[in-house]
Amino acid sequence: MKTLEKMRAAMRRERSLRRMAPDIVYDPDLDTSHGPILYLENITVSFDGFKALNDLNLYIDDGELRCIIGPNGAGKTTMMDVITGKTRPDAGTVFFGQTIDLLRLNEPEIAAEGIGRKFQKPTVFEQQTVHENLELAMHADKRVWPTLRARLTGEQRDRIGEVLDIIGLTAQCQSRAGLLSHGQKQWLEIGMLLMQNPRLLLVDEPVAGMTGHETERTAELLNSLAGQHSVVVVEHDMEFVRSIARTVTVLHEGSVLAEGDMNEVQNDPKVIEVYLGE
């Protein structure tokens, strides 16, 4: 907890990063008074008898940065799918704050509640420019008619410019997203997440295909986001996890195997067994 406090303090000082989190109004019903912002309880998902998630229980605190690791097939991506409404669980409950039942909402409604997601495989709109990609992601009224009439305000243009700065794509702003390199697409997607400015960020393997320097920058960025936002990161890169993680959750065969800080988890005999085999 001490590290968390320290990071928050650091972020308050860091003015350049501060800009990325302007105050925006979310659903006033979002009630995080008990601490956690996300409650996953007794979630089970099965595909043709195979249990991708098996009675999973997971809580994410408001403002927390949580890393989730686990071997292939542990259910990490399925868990993200459940939270964002892509997959409906066979059993269990998912609550955003105290009151918002995510299982009653569809994908866009969940996104509108303030949950953003970066996919494992970077999916940007390849036929459109970087600028347009960011504009599409921007937090705004996303109903049809307002979108038809929407014109970018100066404020919004500035905001896009800031994010372009952060993700280092200002020069490519008018080029088609499909022409970007893999790492640049990863950045663009992170940028889109920033434009969405969600309350909870779900980030699936953000540093795959990035150089060491870029990885560092990503770590820095995610760290700075925690506090005002809650961040859940799924990652294989242990170095990266070590560099950002405060709390680590290990998933195995669809349920939580261990939870704690990096050292605790690494010394847990169950985790060692799963990762190194019998």
Binding site: P108, F125, E126, Q128, E132, L136, T147, L148, A150
Partner: peptide
């Protein structure tokens, strides 16, 4: 902007949905 959303739907429907 609606046109851009529509093109986004054409190219990556799911992704557009996750943007809200």
């Amino acid at each position: 902007k609606m046109g851009r959303v529509v093109k986004a739907v054409r190219d990556a429907e799911d992704r557009t949905r996750f943007l809200g």
